[in-house]
């Protein structure tokens, strides 16, 4: 898909307005998983706004956002960065062959205490 179309699709799925961002960086200051991520919450907002989504689609950062919503909660401008991360992730995993989690991998990833909640959440987040 062309970048422009991809941007529009992402904006629709995100249902949030990146132009509200005043580039304060509070989202990335609050993010509990910042160091694991190649692209950070404020960059998702900015790069989607600028249509520079290709690097995001290829980044592992998509799968490292915890959707803890702290960036949404603390953003002074109600930009909702997590919605952009989610929208880019959906744009990626909705593509054919982009499932990140396969049932056969599960036994290795769990132990006897692993709650069902973790598995259903992970399947929701990593597969389509």
């Amino acid at each position: 898909m062309e970048q422009q179309n991809m941007r529009e699709e992402i904006l629709f799925t995100a249902n949030a307005d990146p132009k509200k961002c005043m580039k304060c960086g509070k989202c990335s200051g609050a993010c509990p998983n910042y160091d694991k991520m190649e692209y950070h919450p404020h960059q998702f907002v900015s790069m989607v706004q600028e249509g520079n989504v290709e690097p995001l689609l290829e980044s592992e950062s998509l799968y490292l956002c915890l959707t803890c919503m702290v960036c949404v909660e603390r953003c002074p401008r109600n930009v909702q960065p997590a919605r952009f991360i989610e929208a880019v992730r959906l744009a990626k995993i909705r593509q054919q062959g982009e499932n990140r989690l396969k049932p056969q991998d599960v036994p290795e990833l769990i132990d006897e205490d692993t709650p069902q909640q973790l598995l259903v959440s992970a399947f929701r987040k990593y597969t389509k």
Binding site: N33, K36, L64, T67, C68, L101, L118, A122
Partner: peptide, 22 residues
């Protein structure tokens, strides 16, 4: 009120480990 690392343990077990430790 900070995250425990959630489901990301599936992608990277270090994430909940670090968060839980904090």
């Amino acid at each position: 009120n900070e995250c425990c690392g959630g489901y990301a343990g599936i992608a990277d077990p270090e994430v909940p480990e670090k968060r839980a430790a904090a």
